[in-house]
């Protein structure tokens, strides 16, 4: 019971406080969700633009919090805004003939791969200290980002939301404002295209035993 009191405020309470002009409540809301928004933006538009996208998303959230309906899931609403900001950005850049999803740049000149797969993250894995394993993973991360960047924006959004963020079909339908059939079809084509791109890496995966296939998750 004490932990409930000392724990972070629920999102609904934070939103209610934000609506009274409590900027500290909004700061808490940003701290709670900045990782998700920034990460999703990285996968959608690349790390170069992800910071600006994140700022734009939260400013939009602040401006339109009064339109948020409490019966909806805040996370779904937040991802919908992020998706819209990302798609607007991609359309704008494409119109200006710009380059999308910079594949070879790491933010702040760090050793981070375009997917944000940092050496520090890999350090948690004992195998990651091996320079060869590190190089392999870097190459795989590059290949993955490259493959993701070749997907259409809408196919990439579905794939990232489902396979990287674990959203269910129904939730993705609400985030992207499309039908369930569209979600399924986009996911199917995105996975098939990504598998073709990553085939050289996936061919190393051995055939799973027939019994293993029964444990569908």
């Amino acid at each position: 019971m004490n932990s409930r009191k000392s724990g972070p405020l629920p999102v609904e309470e934070l939103i209610a406080r934000c609506l009274t002009g409590d900027v500290r409540a909004f700061e808490t809301l940003v701290k709670m969700h900045q990782g998700q928004v920034y990460g999703y933006a990285c996968r959608m538009v690349g790390p170069d633009a992800a910071e600006d996208i994140t700022q734009e998303v939260f400013l939009r959230v602040y401006r339109s919090l009064h339109t948020f309906r409490s019966e909806a899931e805040f996370k779904t609403w937040l991802y919908r805004i992020t998706t819209n900001v990302c798609l607007d950005h991609l359309r704008r850049v494409r119109r200006q003939g710009g380059r999308l999803l910079s594949l070879d740049s790491a933010p702040n000149g760090s050793e981070e791969s375009p997917l944000g797969w940092t050496i520090a993250d890999q350090a948690a894995d004992p195998g990651a200290t091996d320079p060869e394993v590190r190089a392999e993973r870097r190459e795989l991360a590059q290949a993955l980002q490259q493959a993701l960047s070749r997907l259409s924006d809408k196919h990439r959004a579905v794939l990232v939301l489902h396979d990287m963020y674990g959203f269910r079909y129904e939730e993705i339908k609400d985030i992207l404002h499309c039908s369930l059939g569209t979600v399924k079809s986009r996911l199917f084509y995105a996975r098939r295209a990504l598998r073709e791109e990553l085939r050289p890496y996936l061919d190393a995966v051995g055939e799973w035993p027939a019994s293993g296939a029964s444990s569908a998750s």
Partner: peptide, 8 residues
């Protein structure tokens, strides 16, 4: 399993 990017 791709780790989430860390916000700046």
């Amino acid at each position: 399993t791709v780790p989430a990017p860390t916000p700046p």
